[in-house]
Write a protein that binds this DNA or RNA. Sequence first.
DNA 1: CCGGGTCGATTGACTGGTCAATCAGCCAGT
DNA 2: ACTGGCTGATTGACCAGTCAATCGACCCGG
Lengths: 199, 199
Amino acid sequence: MAKAPPADKRRQILDAAVRVFARQGFHATRVSDIADEAGVAYGLVYHYFRSKDEVLNELFVERWSLLLAAIEETDREGETPRDKLAAVASFIVDSYRHDPELMKVIIVEVTRAANSFGRTHLPEIRQAYQSIAKIVEDGQRAGAFRDDVAPLFASMSFYGAIEQLLSGWIFDLIPASDGDFEQAKELVVTTICDGLEPR
Amino acid sequence: MAKAPPADKRRQILDAAVRVFARQGFHATRVSDIADEAGVAYGLVYHYFRSKDEVLNELFVERWSLLLAAIEETDREGETPRDKLAAVASFIVDSYRHDPELMKVIIVEVTRAANSFGRTHLPEIRQAYQSIAKIVEDGQRAGAFRDDVAPLFASMSFYGAIEQLLSGWIFDLIPASDGDFEQAKELVVTTICDGLEPR
DNA sequence: CCGGGTCGATTGACTGGTCAATCAGCCAGT
DNA sequence: ACTGGCTGATTGACCAGTCAATCGACCCGG
């Protein structure tokens, strides 16, 4: 059997945590729930992580750094500002489509929990808003967008609109077929960009 | 001293709870914190409320019913769909300007905590989205808005954009002068409405 | 080829601290 | 003296985090 499966218990614990956090919420899950879901002893969670918080931490940082990287790459490679915003919206929506449980945890327990857990990560979250704001600002400089709105405000609205749609899917408030995902992307980009067009 | 001040202890407790919840977050506040802040004995909180949850409950219901009423009145009295959406945006932003602590609690602890506490209130929250969606739908029927977007999606984006701006103010991510409040209202209404205009 | 030694991974019973909620009674006003 | 708003010490449950013990892979010397 060679080395056999290393079984990477650490990963196993993280994946289990996503499932349990998504199902019960962070506060309502006991560390033992994570261990049980992972099929692992209670203490092992503490072998790999300093605390329950650190598990969520790790999940957030892993995912959010991908988002930040994606936004910045988009900014570098994209053609028009509208294209860039469309790519960002697409990335976020597709992230949800690809792994709804993880995105649910990120959004519900971190991004939208800025008062409790999310407070620690405000800088990283802010970074995303600012990267998007930069896209808007460049668009203004290039004359593609009207320049009488603060880029950061536009960025917050844009991100907020997307996140609200994700919330709608997460809590079954709006339909979630493939067509719906595409329609949502288009809606957000169109409304924001048309609204930002020079008068 | 006549009847003296009835001192309405119940109200006193609710007001204190707003301050403490805003400062520390719902989970991090102990019932004794509320009692202390209200200058009242621990047990009295339980004289007026069945549980700590019920205190937050009460705060949310009080405020949210005002919002629902405002949206529906706007819908009845407003002229154009755009006017109606502008009035809704204005109401929400002014609610924050008038009582930031209360709005912080409502948003952070209920509206954006749909996984824990907010779950109970999903129906009422959903009701707001649907009332806004109705405004959009009427606009579509009247030919003021393009009709190839689901009204509920537009409604969610609209509300999400506003709520994100409130979050930005709550957590000091964006400037909050009177001018900023007005600019934000205008931004949200303009972008959403222009984006919804028939092509 | 075997005994035994090392060390990290793994286990789960246990502890300490935290709070929500209770309840037995106090006292001011009538 | 009775009633009901009011008091705050107490209790009981819960759970994050600790830790002492076991396991098992691998190595080394005889």
